[in-house]
Amino acid sequence: MSAQPIIHIENVHKYFDKVHALRGVNLYVQPGEVVLIIGPSGSGKSTLLRCINHLEEFDQGHIIVDGIPLVTAENINAVRAEVGIVFQQFNLFPHLTAIENITLAQKVVRKRDIKEAQRVAMDLLEKVGIPEKADNYPLQLSGGQQQRVAIARALAMNPKIMLFDEPTSALDPEMIQEVLDVMLDLAQEGMTMVVVSHEMGFAKAAADRAILMDEGQIIEEASPEILFTHPKHERTKRFLSKVL
């Protein structure tokens, strides 16, 4: 592990009109690290995650991803090409089949030819365990299958970092594990991951670090075992007593 963080977030502030959503957040993520962010709803955890690939503009502070500061439009596009994101609501493209969902950006952004894009897509569908669904449309898939296609779609761009924004919150309970398994594999392969989730099982199995956010600030951070079992802060204790 190099000492240079791949994600460098420094004193970031974000306002939604009058609401101060992020209040001076500092976070440094090392290459290969898996960071879990927990916290009550409205605590700013999704907003922080979405700032990393600039889906959310921030009003103050600096974010540098893999040496590229999020300032100009070109830089933002360059960062987005290196950062994959998986959304709570999957956001698959409903007018395209599963394999087309995965090949489109490869062709348009990475300029791969169709043959190679399809080969990459099939390999990834194999990896997430649903190669037989390649020609199905998203509406023909279960939630868990859609989320796995969404992960494959992000991975097809060969990202250095994967962001997960509550990837299992919209899923039926019996489908959560199939998505978590894919994420565990990714973590084991050494992918740098920032995950907003309350899946404690995943956290204990894969996360190097867990962070509790509240009211736009990082309250406490530690390894998951320590944060979940011996939290220092009153607020962390209160939150954990509700979710655990």
Partner: peptide, 14 residues
């Protein structure tokens, strides 16, 4: 839905 544009942009499309 807004998520469609977000998903497309986050894949690096302009």
């Amino acid at each position: 839905p807004k998520g469609q544009m977000e998903a497309a942009r986050s894949l690096g499309m302009n």
